[in-house]
């Protein structure tokens, strides 16, 4: 979805090895955002990987770069930066009108999303 698709070239093998070690149900396909998550070494890479997952899964409700009016959907820029457990819980299981993601996103991916959200939607 984003312009830096280059980073996932050649990581198929890495994905195959690492995905066995992730915690929740792992989607079968080696798609680009997922590969970026697994490749991420630095915080910046994690945030960038989180952004790709965000665009792919969350943007159509939470807005471009996390900007939305906050009256229909939660304004993620306001999400408390010290409540990771709540973030993981809400994203995993869903909350009211917020759909659950546990069958789509792995724990690693939710971690990357958290990095992106904590960074305030920047990358």
């Amino acid at each position: 979805m984003t312009r830096d698709l280059g980073i996932f070239a050649g990581v198929i093998l890495t994905v195959a090895v690492l995905s066995a070690a992730t915690l929740t149900d792992v989607p079968a396909a080696e798609d680009a955002p997922r590969s970026a998550v697994l490749q991420a070494q630095t915080e910046a890479q994690r945030i960038a990987a989180g952004k790709r997952l965000y665009v792919q899964n969350c943007m159509h409700c939470h807005g471009l770069n996390m900007v939305n009016p906050g009256n229909v959907t939660f304004d993620l820029r306001e999400f408390p930066r010290d409540e990771k457990a709540r973030f993981v819980e809400s994203v995993t299981r869903g909350k009211n009108n917020m759909p659950p993601w546990r069958d789509v996103l792995s724990a690693d991916e939710i971690d990357a999303l958290w990095a992106y959200v904590r960074a305030g939607g920047q990358s």
Binding site: H60, P69, V72, D75
Partner: peptide, 12 residues
């Protein structure tokens, strides 16, 4: 509302 990032809508 969802895609524009028009934060003026926050007052609605």
């Amino acid at each position: 509302t969802l895609f524009s990032g028009d934060t003026r809508l926050a007052s609605v």
